[in-house]
Design a protein around this nucleic acid. Structure first.
Lengths: 168, 168
DNA sequence: ACCTGAACACCGTTCAAGT
DNA sequence: ACCTGAACACCGTTCAAGT
């Protein structure tokens, strides 16, 4: 399951050495299969985020979390489109990731860094969006970074720092 | 062609009263077909944007343009994913829309409202992203508006107005 | 020259038969 | 009870035959 990105279900079954029917009984929906396939990876993502969040400001932690989510969704073709559903399907790593995201968002909003009218679903939505659009890009492109940075700027409460003096 | 969103090519051909082979010869790629199907609509979009741009500030004009593009890409299922390619395919309305977008972006950047490191491709990319993610949403949802607003905030040069006083 | 649609290839899904 | 994979349905694409 590791590499075979958007292989046909037939190939997945063959590679897992089971019949296609058995595959269907274990994973009734495509989302269930995807969820199981990347569950471990999501667990790691959540854990790394928790560790990082102990060191940096909430807003920053949320940004890096978003970026990690985008990159995660880009690993398996076909995952991005159903990221929202996969995260909700409840398997352990999905749940951990959702929990961590909710936690970071609350913290960042409480600290006044991030707009209070943002929902976690919007974060997932953005991660999905960036993954989907950059999927066709050349592999090592800079667009992911640029889009993440743009998105994140959109999340920030206005005038956080005024890196240059404001005009007139 | 008007309504049949993501119908099979077979149905498109049948509806157009031609053989499937003829359809292929007229439109060798899916993008060519999509481009032709929405060309008129894109012409209108570009024209309306030009009229609007005469009345409002460049940044504002660019935002409304982006929103229109998002809504356009949401009309036909399957268009969003290839919006970038479709816009480049060169048919009249596509060309007009690209021209108008480039023009608005230049103006908005020259006026200092919009970040100078944004490319038109990024705008298209964002429109694609929002369309793709909101495609699965309930029809009348508010998410499109919220995401467009977020995106656009990300485009803006910092501290444009300082709606509230900056902190300490 | 142009059009047609049967034919082929591919993939997702089901379900009768086997163990 | 559980597994299997042939069989069915569907869609995209091509190309030999017809006009």
């Amino acid at each position: 399951m590791q590499r075979g990105a958007d292989a046909s279900l037939d190939e997945v079954a063959k590679h897992a050495q089971v019949g296609i029917g058995t595959l269907y009984r274990h994973f009734p929906t495509r989302e269930a299969l995807l969820g199981a396939a990347c569950d471990e990876r999501l667990s790691e993502l959540a854990q790394q985020s928790r560790q990082r969040a102990a060191r940096v400001a909430p807003g920053e932690a949320l940004c890096v979390f978003l970026e990690a989510l985008v990159r995660h969704a880009s690993v398996y073709r076909g995952l991005a489109a159903s990221l929202g559903i996969v995260l909700k399907n409840g398997s352990s790593g999905c749940h951990a990731t959702t929990e961590e995201g909710l936690r970071l968002l609350s913290l960042a909003q409480a600290s006044g860094e991030i707009r209070s009218d943002i929902a976690f679903d919007d974060i997932v939505c953005m991660a999905t969006a960036i993954s989907l659009t950059t999927a066709q890009d050349a592999p090592g492109g800079r667009r992911i970074d640029r889009l993440v940075s743009m998105f994140v700027d959109g999340l920030r409460v206005r005038a956080p720092k005024a890196s240059r003096g404001p005009r007139s």
